[in-house]
Amino acid sequence: MKTLPALLLAASLYAQSGQNVAGTEVHVLPVQGNVFMLLGAGGNTTLQAGKDGALVVDTQFAELAPKIVAEIRKLTERPIIWMVNTHVHPDHTGGNEALSKPYGPGPGQTPRIIAHENVLNRMTQTGPNQPEIPAGMWPNDEYGTAQKDIFFNGEAVVIYHMPRAHTDGDSIVFFRKSDVVSTGDIFTPGTWPVIDLARGGSVQGTIDALNAILKLTVPARYQDGGTLVIPGHGRLCDESDVVEYRDMLTIVRDRVQDLIRKGMTLEQVKEARPARDYETEYTGVPGRWTRDQFIEAVFKSLSEARK
């Protein structure tokens, strides 16, 4: 019974599906090489477009699909061949079905939707208090290995599994020739890290994943640009921005760990405000994720690891 609130919370994280997104404008930002970034109402969408067709990383909400496709069509007339879900949350998977059917390879064919197998498991094994997720939204090309490679539009696209990070089914997508990494919600600059414990996330896994991203990034001259990073939410970034975020999460982890060692309870840790020097820089997700929930997730994740 104690886990019910956590499950409900997890179900609501970023779960804006069904909200009125009619007035939402979709902004397209050319990133570099074949890659574009689409900002709308959900998580950021990454588009890789070329003669082979379109590859879409994260699909935002079903309601936004027409607008997203309208923007994709300005860049390529080719069908969507591949889709990748970086994790299970509906603001990243909500448009799977809506984008698949009308804009896929052709009649009777749908794009391949790649995701880690834990995404499929989470979608197909919803809890008793969670709504069922239609089969058309499920990944149909799941993987269970450390990485999955495809070659598309003239470049290697490497999909890495990041274990127990934001959730237990996180993937990051590295476009090797374009030199762009799409991170999903492992990296959300300006927003308190959402660590979805109920779906297998952990603070250490998130830090490990951020450090893994930093191993892929190489800055260009003046430490700007080079490998560009499309976060799950927020603006286009590069290595320095990931470093700032990694530092914040590492420092907060160390502080909470220190307070746990001193025997403080969760309430005492929250009262100590171990992230107070980041409170003017980071915000929550209105109505869904707060600073205290972030601190609680760090506390519980570290406490669990000590057992």
């Binding site: 930002l29 900002l39 003046y222 560009l228 603006r235 286009l236 590069d238």
Partner: peptide
């Protein structure tokens, strides 16, 4: 750091906040 910076006087607009930020 051999840093270089450009200051434009041709009335061009600033990029949106969601574009890449740089040290300069």
């Amino acid at each position: 750091w051999d840093s270089e910076r450009t200051i434009y006087l041709d009335d061009r607009p600033h990029p949106p906040d969601y574009a890449l930020h740089t040290f300069q």
